[in-house]
């Protein structure tokens, strides 16, 4: 990508000397939808919290996060205040704990409008109403006087999205936005995010553990494992031709919707390594069926596999069979 909206390069984060991110490179183009997938502890959320300066003080953050030519890491507070919410907005898994329970939702959306767009009074109220309407809150005019506990989980997530939209961000980072919601509500929220992206032209980063959710919503997917991006691939190729053994393993661990029922899944053996006790070389090595001695020599870099696909694996190539028993796609 020549001129991305956000370019993260060599991002490293350590807590008390324990590395959590080990050099993440990721770019998001204007208007693009990028999915970030991985299991708990892989660093998918920390990447964006670090990029926005939202990690606690004990975190050691190095590398570079450039938004529109401006470096964000170590940027002065006034700059970050304009970026957070104004350029890049973020929503989280549990909307109920992100909203203030003692303030009406209209006031909370209005606060974002005042901070980022200097709106007040009747203008702010009208805009709040429009935003709540846009995110599909029924009867927005009256509902803006409701408290979060009077709304369902799905409605509260819509309010969070309205707050995020208030600053007219160019990038929305949605961190597991549907994980705490029921499946039919998850479908509503994903539909809403797609509609809003089409209406506003903002870019979207969707962080999720669910490959299906990400592939359906995003153009491109970054798969993370143990603090690194190990594969970057278009959503179309993700399911047809995953390159990294970990990506292949995640896909084959997904129960199929057809074929013989109750057959064994090709599960990845073992579990995610502890950040303080990472294996040498490729962190996936001990769980990998393709593991060879050269894998332990160094952390494999991301290399081009195909147009629009990069993977961090030393043992790649057309003659290499899939690492896990992938159903012929």
């Amino acid at each position: 990508m020549d001129d991305p909206l956000v370019r993260i390069s060599g991002l490293r984060v350590a807590f008390d000397g324990v590395p959590v991110l080990r050099g993440v490179d990721l770019a998001v183009g204007a208007g693009e939808a990028v999915g970030v997938v991985g299991e708990s502890g892989c660093g998918k959320s920390v990447t964006w919290l670090a990029a926005l300066g939202l990690l606690p003080g004990k975190a050691r953050v190095t590398g570079s996060v450039v938004l529109d030519g401006q470096e964000l890491l170590g940027a002065p507070m006034p700059v970050l205040d304009r970026v957070r919410g104004g350029q890049i907005a973020m929503i989280f898994q549990d909307p109920a704990s992100s909203l203030n329970p003692v303030h009406r939702i209209g006031r909370q959306v209005g606060e974002a409008l005042r901070l980022h767009r200097g709106m007040d009074g009747a203008a702010a109220r009208a805009e709040t109403r429009r935003l709540l309407d846009q995110v599909g809150i029924p009867d927005a005019g009256n509902r803006m006087d409701a408290y979060p506990h009077e709304l369902s989980g799905g409605q509260n997530q819509r309010v969070m999205i309205a707050m995020a939209l208030a600053g007219r961000p160019r990038l929305l980072v949605a961190d597991e936005p549907t994980t705490a919601l029921d499946v039919t509500i998850q479908a509503q929220i994903l539909d809403l995010l797609a509609t809003l992206r089409a209406e506003t032209g903002m870019a979207l980063v969707l962080i999720s553990h669910d490959l299906g959710v990400v592939a359906e919503t995003c153009d491109r997917v970054a798969v993370m494992y143990a603090g690194l991006v190990i594969e970057e691939v278009s959503s179309a190729r993700l399911f047809d031709a995953p390159a990294h053994p970990y990506t292949q393993g995640l896909l084959s661990a997904l129960p199929p919707l057809d074929g013989l029922p109750r057959q064994h899944l090709a599960a990845i053996p073992g579990s995610v390594p502890e950040p303080r006790a990472l294996p040498p070389g490729c962190a996936f090595g001990p769980r990998c069926p393709r593991h060879a001695s050269l894998c332990d020599e160094q952390v494999p870099p991301l290399v081009d596999v195909a147009p629009g696909q990069r993977a961090a694996c030393r043992i790649l190539g057309a003659d290499v069979p899939p690492a896990f028993g992938l159903a012929a796609a």
Partner: peptide, 23 residues
């Protein structure tokens, strides 16, 4: 039908049937 349609499915071409309202 809505539950089945809500299963995330890669390469979905048909638009998902989105159920309105909350439980």
């Amino acid at each position: 039908q809505a539950l089945v349609s809500a299963i995330p499915h890669p390469g979905r071409t048909a638009r998902r049937q989105v159920l309105q309202g909350d439980p």
